[in-house]
């Protein structure tokens, strides 16, 4: 019972952090004029949630983050929200599969694959929304934009986990 409460609280904290990152990141102007490309800082929290609790809780955090973030920024149920939802779901799926069934990747690799998964999910939703496959021409742009951002988020999480291996803060929070 205590464990369940602890987990619930920690998941809520993760959702809150992811939402905050999502919203603040949306306020930042992008140096590149590429619609749909973002730094994806909130993805750090999604990956952390998958790492700590597994696919289902990671998906919960990701979807809750998209819904809450869109409510705050006033984009709920807009096309951009649909793309974000589909992207987040695909991204979570890809990252969870990699974390569960492979162990040769560090967080950087997982995050890179997640970024690509996010782009594919976005484009899939865009195809369905626009009822046309022509949006596939946008894929190379998104892919190239997604590689550095995926790398950056993966690198950040890697640093966090390396730090945690020494200090053990996350481990204590999750497992006591």
């Amino acid at each position: 019972m205590r464990d369940r409460t602890r987990r619930l609280v920690f998941l809520a904290l993760l959702v809150a952090m992811a939402t905050a990152l999502h919203v603040v990141e949306g306020m930042l102007p992008l140096p590149l004029p590429i619609p749909g490309a973002k730094l994806g800082l909130a993805n750090i929290i999604t990956l952390l949630a998958i790492y700590l609790y597994g696919f289902r809780d990671g998906l919960t955090v990701a979807l809750m983050r998209v819904v809450l973030g869109s409510l705050i920024s006033g984009m709920f149920l807009s096309p951009g929200f649909m793309l974000g939802l589909s992207g987040a779901a695909c991204c979570t799926l890809v990252m969870a599969l990699l974390l569960k069934y492979t162990n040769c990747f560090s967080m950087i690799g997982v995050s890179l694959a997640g970024a690509v998964g996010h782009n594919l999910g976005q484009l899939l939703a865009a195809c369905l929304l626009l009822q046309s496959g022509a949006i596939i021409y946008y894929l190379p742009v998104l892919l190239i934009a997604g590689l550095p951002t995926g790398f950056i988020t993966g690198f950040l999480l890697n640093s966090l986990l390396v730090h945690d291996r020494k200090s053990g803060i996350l481990r204590d929070l999750v497992r006591t």
Binding site: T102, C104, F105, S106, I108, G109, L112, A113, V116, I136, Y137, L139, P140, L143, I144, L147, F151, N158
Partner: peptide, 25 residues
């Protein structure tokens, strides 16, 4: 960053450049 990461990064880079060539070429 592990070896597999680098291979994955190189592979994805290759795929994205290839997709540029295929779609815009």
């Amino acid at each position: 960053m592990t070896r597999a990461d680098k291979i994955l990064l190189a592979g994805l880079l290759l795929i994205s450049l290839l997709s540029v060539a295929v779609l815009y070429g």
